[in-house]
C-alpha cells in the first residue's frame, strides 16, 4: 500500500500540490484525471521519488520512501514519465534489458532474459527487437518504454500518459494488457490519463484532481456523471450510455 501524508509541493509562492492524502491500493487499475496544471504529473513524480516534496511524506507499506534502498525500491515501484528524450542509440532489446537492471546490475540471468522476452512479446515488439529506439516512430518508442517498465516486474507501476503517440489499435491493446496484468498478476497500475473514456473503460478507480487538490476518488460509474465531470473540467459535458458503458461527449 502506498500512502501520502499531507503532501505539498510549491515553486516559490505557487502551490502545485496542496495537502494530498491518498492511498494507492496494491492491486487494480487507477486513473488520475484532471485539467492541465492540476498537478497530476507532479503527484506522480513525488510518489515515485523522482522529486522531493516541499513538505509531507510518502510511505510504501508504512515505510518512508527515503528510507528504502534505491535498488530495492526499483523492484517494488516503477515509473514511466512522459518526456523520454533519449539521444543514445540503444536497441529495443537493450532498453528492455535495462528494465531488469535492478535485478541483474548488468549481468542478466536466465530469469531476466525470460522476463525480457515476455515483455517484448507482450507489447508486440518482436519484429522491432533489434531496431534502434531513436529510429522508431513515437508510438513504437512508447511501447518500447512500456516494455522496459513492465520487465521491471514491480508491484506498483506508474505511467504518465501511457497512450501518448499511440494509435487506437495500440491504445486499446495496451489498456487491455495492463488491465490483464493488474487482474492476473495482482499488480497496481496507476496512470495519468487525458482521455476520460479510456480511463472510465479500463479503471477500477478514478482519482480526479483540480488546482493541486484531490476532488474525487471513486469508481468510474460515480465519476462518469455530467455534473461531476463539469465540476472537474469547468466545461459543459454530456455523458451518454452506449452498450451499458458511460461515454463522455466533449466535442460539439
Amino acid at each position: 500500500m502506498i500512502q501520502t501524508q499531507q503532501l505539498c509541493l510549491s515553486y516559490g509562492s505557487t502551490e502545485v500540490l496542496k495537502n494530498i492524502n491518498l492511498t494507492f491500493k496494491p492491486a487494480g487499475v487507477t486513473s488520475i484525471i484532471g485539467p492541465n496544471g492540476a498537478g497530476k504529473s507532479s503527484l506522480l513524480s513525488l510518489v515515485c521519488r523522482l522529486q522531493q516534496p516541499t513538505s509531507g511524506s510518502v510511505t510504501l507499506n508504512r515505510e518512508l520512501l527515503g528510507q528504502i534502498k534505491s535498488s530495492d525500491l526499483a523492484r517494488k515501484l516503477a515509473v514511466l514519465r512522459q518526456e523520454n528524450h533519449i539521444v543514445a542509440r540503444l536497441t529495443v532489446e537493450d532498453l528492455v534489458c535495462f528494465g531488469r537492471f535492478p535485478y541483474h546490475q548488468g549481468r542478466p540471468s536466465v530469469t531476466d532474459k525470460a522476463k525480457i522476452d515476455s515483455a517484448i512479446d507482450f507489447l508486440d515488439l518482436q519484429p522491432l527487437r533489434l531496431r534502434y529506439i531513436n529510429e522508431l516512430s513515437g508510438g513504437q518508442r512508447q511501447r518500447a518504454f512500456i516494455a522496459m517498465v513492465l520487465a521491471q516486474d514491480t508491484q506498483y507501476l506508474f505511467l504518465d500518459e501511457p497512450l501518448n503517440n499511440l494509435d487506437m489499435k495500440h491504445s486499446v491493446n495496451i489498456m487491455q494488457r495492463l488491465q490483464q496484468a493488474a487482474q492476473v498478476m495482482h499488480k497496481s497500475i496507476i496512470m495519468v490519463m487525458h482521455d476520460i473514456n479510456f480511463a472510465a473503460c479500463y479503471s477500477d478507480e478514478i482519482i480526479a484532481m483540480k488546482q493541486g487538490q484531490i476532488i474525487y476518488q471513486d469508481c468510474p460509474q460515480m465519476i462518469m456523471q455530467s455534473q461531476v465531470l463539469e465540476k472537474i473540467y469547468d466545461m459543459p459535458l454530456k455523458v451518454v450510455e452506449i452498450e451499458g458503458r458511460p461515454l463522455c461527449l466533449y466535442y460539439r
Binding site: S70, A74, A78, V79, V87, A88, F101, P102, Q105, G106
Partner: peptide, 21 residues
C-alpha cells in the same frame, strides 16, 4: 561501470527509476 554509464545516459529520471545511484 559501462552499464551504469549507459544508464546515466538515459537521464536522471530513468536512472532513479531503475535504482541507479
Amino acid at each position: 561501470i559501462a552499464d551504469k554509464l549507459t544508464l546515466a545516459g538515459l537521464g536522471k529520471q530513468v536512472s532513479i527509476n531503475l535504482g541507479l545511484n
